[in-house]
Deep mutational scan, measured.
Amino acid sequence: MPGGGPEMDDYMETLKDEEDALWENVECNRHMLSRYINPAKLTPYLRQCKVIDEQDEDEVLNAPMLPSKINRAGRLLDILHTKGQRGYVVFLESLEFYYPELYKLVTGKEPTRRFSTIVVEEGHEGLTHFLMNEVIKLQQQMKAKDLQRCELLARLRQLEDEKKQMTLTRVELLTFQERYYKMKEERDSYNDELVKVKDDNYNLAMRYAQLSEEKNMAVMRSRDLQLEIDQLKHRLNKMEEECKLERNQSLKLKNDIENRPKKEQVLELERENEMLKTKNQELQSIIQAGKRSLPDSDKAILDILEHDRKEALEDRQELVNRIYNLQEEARQAEELRDKYLEEKEDLELKCSTLGKDCEMYKHRMNTVMLQLEEVERERDQAFHSRDEAQTQYSQCLIEKDKYRKQIRELEEKNDEMRIEMVRREACIVNLESKLRRLSKDSNNLDQSLPRNLPVTIISQDFGDASPRTNGQEADDSSTSEESPEDSKYFLPYHPPQRRMNLKGIQLQRAKS
């Protein structure tokens, strides 16, 4: 015994090295194993092979420090690593049964499904019991997946119906949107047309105001020219009257000059006056001389005659003075006559000038009245044309509004008919989907599995289990394997941990 101590140590070291070499393959693929292994699927088989106990299973599945599946799978690998070579062998058998691809990844061999460990530990009855539990578990999982698949199909059909409904609603909204954009385009076109009409109206108003201003300026210029013409006519008439007055005065002077006595007659009258003065002096001298030589009687007679002569001279002087006064009065009367005649001529000139001015103003008033009548006639014609244009424009607008209203009513009726057609199509689609759903539900009910399987069917299934373990590994792997896509769409199922009653199965096998 003492001599065998070193050999035992060498043997233990060799086993430990082999164990480390075995687990080295697992550690190399630890990331892939932790990512894809579900500990809840492996722990029943590991407990059946007595590699882990209930406490280890509870620690792996329910520990609060292991929230994710990767953490739980890593903890399970750590626990199996502590179990040595047996933990490695049982772990590979569980991978061979549940995850053939991972088994091939770790060992590089094809899975054979021999279950040597569980046969050694529990015997064939334990293997049968384990396989029966796994089959029931798989059936329950398949039923749950079928239910989930039916629910998802129903949800899918519902979503398809909602999608069709949303599509129809979208078509309806597109119809309304198209109608909205069309009405918006019509409104924009009408606004552009309105702005264009306003611009045209403004341009016409500006043109009309400009023409009116030009016409008023032309009328004012015409009036100024007419006033200048009238003033020139007035000056012409005044000059004609002055010329006529000057002509009359010149004719009067000419007549006075023609009626003036001649120079010879004046000289002859002056000679006669001198001769008479000479004779008068001679007679006076004779009379003076006679007075001195005459007697007293003759002197008395001469005195009487002288007195008579003096009286006659006085009378004559009075007559001469009277004649002079009369001549002066006649001259003054002639001057007054000439003055009055001049005033008369001036008044006649003024009267004729005023008459011509009156005629001029009368003509001017007639011209202004004619212009006013023409302006009123043009204004009435413009008003009439404007009223006709406004009436025609309003009539066109009324007809346009009428046609637009008819078009809008027809478009609304068309839209309502399209919407009604879309709604009826939606109703038809809904009815078809309901009919299809009812038909599929009836087919699913016919094809669904019963909840409680008979014992004979279970025994028959387990009677055929042994050949399947040898020759149909691919079928078992397809039913027991969970793909990543299934984990996305289906909830994980945790079967209840219970042991099955095998009395009925044993009785059935005894009868057979």
Rank of each mutant, 00 (worst) to 15 (best):
G4Y: 13
G4E: 12
G4W: 11
G5L: 13
G5C: 14
G5Q: 13
G5A: 11
P6S: 13
P6W: 12
P6M: 10
P6E: 13
P6Y: 14
P6C: 11
P6T: 11
E7N: 12
E7K: 10
M8W: 13
M8V: 13
M8S: 14
D9E: 14
D9I: 10
D10P: 14
D10I: 10
D10L: 10
Y11S: 11
Y11Q: 13
Y11F: 11
Y11C: 12
M12F: 12
M12S: 10
E13G: 13
E13Y: 09
T14Q: 12
T14F: 10
L15F: 12
L15P: 11
L15S: 11
K16H: 10
K16D: 10
K16M: 12
K16V: 11
K16S: 09
D17M: 09
D17V: 12
E18R: 13
E18I: 11
E18L: 11
E18H: 12
E19W: 12
E19L: 12
E19V: 14
D20T: 12
D20C: 12
D20Y: 11
A21R: 13
A21H: 09
L22T: 14
L22V: 08
L22P: 05
L22E: 10
W23K: 08
W23V: 08
E24I: 10
N25D: 10
N25V: 09
N25M: 08
N25E: 09
V26G: 06
V26E: 08
V26A: 10
V26I: 09
V26C: 07
E27Y: 02
E27L: 04
C28I: 06
C28S: 09
C28H: 08
N29Y: 02
N29A: 03
N29M: 04
R30I: 02
R30D: 01
R30H: 03
R30V: 00
H31A: 13
H31D: 07
H31R: 05
H31P: 01
H31W: 11
H31K: 03
M32S: 09
M32T: 09
L33W: 04
L33F: 05
L33A: 01
S34Q: 05
S34D: 01
R35I: 05
Y36R: 08
Y36S: 10
I37A: 01
I37D: 00
N38E: 00
N38M: 05
N38V: 03
N38K: 01
P39V: 10
P39W: 01
P39M: 02
P39E: 01
A40V: 05
A40P: 04
K41M: 05
K41G: 04
K41E: 09
K41R: 10
K41H: 02
K41Q: 02
L42V: 06
L42Q: 00
L42A: 05
T43M: 05
T43Y: 00
T43I: 02
P44E: 06
P44L: 01
P44D: 01
P44Q: 08
P44I: 04
Y45V: 05
L46I: 05
L46K: 01
R47P: 02
R47A: 02
Q48I: 03
Q48P: 02
Q48F: 02
C49W: 14
C49R: 08
K50E: 08
V51L: 05
V51Q: 01
V51C: 05
I52E: 01
I52F: 07
D53C: 08
D53A: 05
E54G: 04
E54Y: 07
E54Q: 05
E54D: 06
E54K: 05
E54T: 06
E54I: 14
Q55T: 05
D56V: 02
D56Q: 00
D56M: 00
D58I: 02
D58F: 01
D58S: 03
E59P: 00
V60R: 00
L61I: 05
L61K: 04
N62I: 08
N62W: 12
N62P: 00
N62M: 05
A63G: 11
A63P: 01
A63I: 01
A63W: 01
A63F: 08
P64N: 05
P64L: 08
P64I: 04
M65R: 04
M65P: 00
M65H: 06
M65N: 06
M65V: 01
L66M: 05
L66H: 01
L66G: 00
L66K: 00
L66Y: 15
L66I: 03
P67H: 09
S68P: 00
S68V: 00
K69S: 04
I70A: 11
I70D: 00
R72P: 00
R72M: 00
R72E: 00
R72C: 00
A73N: 08
A73C: 06
A73I: 03
G74C: 04
G74D: 06
R75C: 05
R75F: 03
R75S: 02
R75Q: 07
L76P: 04
L76S: 04
D78H: 02
D78K: 03
L80V: 08
H81D: 02
H81R: 10
H81W: 04
T82M: 08
T82V: 09
T82S: 11
K83V: 05
K83N: 04
G84C: 04
G84P: 04
G84F: 04
G84T: 02
Q85I: 05
Q85S: 08
R86P: 08
R86Q: 14
G87V: 03
G87I: 00
Y88I: 05
Y88K: 09
Y88W: 08
V89E: 14
V89C: 12
F91D: 02
F91Q: 06
F91V: 05
F91K: 09
F91R: 05
L92Q: 02
L92A: 05
E93K: 11
E93W: 06
S94V: 10
S94E: 03
S94D: 01
S94H: 00
S94N: 01
L95I: 03
L95E: 04
E96R: 08
Y98K: 08
Y98G: 10
Y98R: 02
Y98P: 03
E101I: 07
L102R: 04
Y103P: 01
Y103L: 00
K104Y: 08
L105V: 03
V106H: 05
G108M: 05
G108W: 05
G108T: 03
K109L: 15
K109W: 06
E110V: 03
E110A: 08
P111M: 00
P111I: 06
P111G: 12
T112K: 15
T112L: 14
R113A: 12
R114L: 08
F115N: 14
F115H: 15
F115P: 15
F115V: 15
S116V: 06
T117N: 15
T117V: 07
V119I: 11
V120G: 07
V120E: 05
E121H: 15
E121K: 09
E121P: 13
E122Q: 04
E122G: 09
H124E: 15
E125W: 13
E125Y: 13
E125C: 10
E125I: 10
E125Q: 15
G126M: 15
G126H: 15
L127W: 09
L127R: 08
L127G: 09
T128V: 09
T128C: 04
T128G: 08
T128R: 05
T128F: 07
H129N: 03
H129F: 11
H129A: 07
F130H: 10
F130G: 14
L131P: 03
L131V: 06
L131E: 05
M132L: 08
M132K: 04
M132T: 07
N133R: 14
N133V: 08
N133M: 05
N133G: 08
V135T: 07
I136Q: 05
K137I: 14
K137A: 08
L138T: 10
L138P: 05
Q140T: 09
Q141R: 09
Q141H: 11
M142Y: 09
M142N: 13
M142S: 11
K143Y: 10
K143H: 10
A144F: 10
A144L: 13
K145Y: 10
K145C: 09
K145W: 10
D146Q: 12
D146E: 13
